[in-house]
Simulated assay, not measured.
Amino acid sequence: MIDTISFRRNLPVGAVGHRALGWWGMWMLIATEAALFAYLLFSYFYLLSQSQNIGLPATPPSLRLALPNTFILIGSSLILWWGERGMRRGRMMRQLAALGLALALGVIFMAVQGEEWRNKTFSITEHAYGSLYFTVTGFHMLHVLGGALMLAALFVWTALGHFNAERNAPITIGALYWHFVDAVWLTIFGSFYLYPYLL
Results as ranks from 00 to 15, higher is better:
90 G>A: 06
98 A>C: 06
106 G>I: 10
116 E>Y: 03
129 Y>T: 13
120 K>Q: 14
91 R>Q: 15
90 G>V: 07
121 T>N: 12
131 S>T: 14
93 M>I: 11
106 G>D: 09
86 G>Y: 02
102 A>E: 02
94 R>S: 14
122 F>E: 01
129 Y>L: 12
92 M>Y: 04
117 W>C: 06
113 Q>K: 02
106 G>E: 06
125 T>P: 03
100 G>Q: 07
114 G>N: 04
111 A>I: 14
122 F>T: 00
113 Q>P: 01
95 Q>T: 08
118 R>W: 02
96 L>E: 00
132 L>F: 04
93 M>T: 14
122 F>M: 00
130 G>S: 10
109 F>K: 09
96 L>C: 05
128 A>Y: 05
110 M>E: 11
104 A>V: 11
104 A>D: 07
89 R>L: 13
114 G>F: 03
117 W>H: 10
93 M>G: 13
110 M>A: 12
87 M>G: 04
133 Y>L: 11
118 R>L: 08
126 E>K: 10
122 F>R: 00
90 G>L: 07
102 A>L: 10
104 A>S: 13
115 E>C: 12
87 M>I: 01
100 G>Y: 03
96 L>V: 06
109 F>P: 04
85 R>E: 08
119 N>Q: 15
119 N>I: 06
113 Q>G: 00
100 G>P: 02
92 M>V: 05
110 M>Q: 07
133 Y>C: 05
134 F>C: 13
127 H>R: 12
131 S>P: 06
119 N>K: 14
121 T>W: 05
107 V>I: 14
89 R>H: 14
93 M>R: 15
112 V>P: 03
129 Y>P: 04
104 A>E: 05
105 L>M: 14
127 H>I: 09
111 A>P: 05
118 R>K: 02
127 H>D: 15
121 T>C: 04
98 A>H: 01
87 M>N: 01
110 M>R: 07
122 F>Q: 01
133 Y>S: 06
108 I>M: 09
135 T>I: 14
135 T>F: 07
126 E>R: 15
113 Q>Y: 00
112 V>N: 09
112 V>A: 10
130 G>H: 07
103 L>S: 11
122 F>P: 01
115 E>T: 06
135 T>D: 06
120 K>C: 13
108 I>V: 15
101 L>Y: 01
94 R>I: 13
87 M>R: 02
102 A>Y: 01
104 A>T: 12
105 L>W: 09
120 K>L: 15
132 L>A: 11
100 G>A: 13
